[in-house]
Simulated assay, not measured.
Amino acid sequence: MIKSIDILCIGSVLWDVVGRSPSVMRLGSDVPGRIERLPGGVAMNIAMTLARFGMTPALLTAIGRDREGDELMIEAQNMGLVTDYVYRSEDLPTDSYMAVEGANGLIAAIADAHSLEQAGAKIITAMGDGRLGDEATPYNGLIALDGNLTVDLLRKISSSPLFASADLRVAPASPGKADRLLALLGHPVATLYVNLEEANLLTRRDCTSSEQAALALIERGAKRVLVTDGGKSASDATADRVITKQPPSVLVTRVTGAGDTFMAAHIAAERRGETRDDALETALNAAATYVSGEHPR
């Protein structure tokens, strides 16, 4: 029997291979550190954090029918995530992500989400075949959507009646894929979660603060945006109000997944009924705890 679902997490679910060193790293650095493999991907990171906050997320993604995929499905189920709607491909391998982090932050990363991209609209089949809704009775709950999807699929989602009644929360996969969100910039029910660099890429501006960037996105047609700027500030903007808060000061020990943690914590806080001001503060505190290494992934 399928568990009651609180939110759909649509996008990348893969294996993260992350190498971390306490040393400052430069191009060509060869230093001691730790390498670990963990469940990851934007949709997965958000879902895992939501589960820690007591919510029941369902994954809509593509996972291969290989050993890595079987292991990933088991990991997801063990964390309480609903995997009944995952598209399992016979011929596409399970996706992966590789990153190197030093004391000076993220050094480099490569995201191999080609299977997700090739699967395309197959990952959202359940949205229209009656399992999660159809055009007559579309899904009307929370959806977390990540920018690893192709531009064509994001455009399809932006105009599809299957998503018109949902509370759509959207995050780019990385600055390199931020421009994919242009397809959803003017969506009437979408809330965008971006960092300052991604906001500047979307607006073609050179904003220097989260508040300035958030206002620029609203001017471009966004209904609501949340813009983060590392340890400096974060802003929640709509056409009638902008809220800006400072995150706690912590020692940063990791960065991969911090933005996803912020987004998930914010969604969970609002679902609990917290005000916009309180939800932003809750999300900043959760992200600070995460990057400090105090909370395991």
Rank of each mutant, 00 (worst) to 15 (best):
C207V: 08
A136Y: 11
L149E: 05
S23K: 13
V17S: 15
D240E: 15
R88N: 14
E198W: 09
E71Y: 10
V250Q: 10
A119Y: 02
A265T: 02
V227K: 07
A103T: 04
G54E: 11
I2T: 15
L106V: 06
L284E: 00
I46T: 09
L14T: 14
A126F: 00
L50Y: 02
S165M: 13
N148Q: 09
M55A: 15
L201G: 05
T256Y: 00
A190W: 01
G147W: 06
T289Y: 04
A119Q: 08
M25G: 00
T94E: 00
I63Y: 02
E71Q: 15
N78I: 12
R254W: 03
L142G: 12
R220C: 15
P175T: 08
V291L: 02
A283C: 08
P57S: 10
L202H: 06
A288G: 03
D16W: 08
T228H: 10
E71I: 09
T256S: 12
L201Y: 05
N104E: 02
D134N: 12
N140T: 13
L132R: 03
R204N: 14
T289Q: 14
H266V: 11
V151C: 11
S89N: 01
G102A: 02
L81A: 04
T203E: 04
A183T: 07
W15L: 10
M79N: 14
G259Y: 00
R204M: 13
M55P: 11
E274Y: 11
A144P: 03
L181M: 07
E198L: 04
D278E: 15
S96I: 04
P247M: 04
A109N: 10
L106R: 09
L60S: 09
D206F: 13
S21Q: 07
M48Y: 13
K232V: 12
A173E: 05
R67D: 15
G105Q: 06
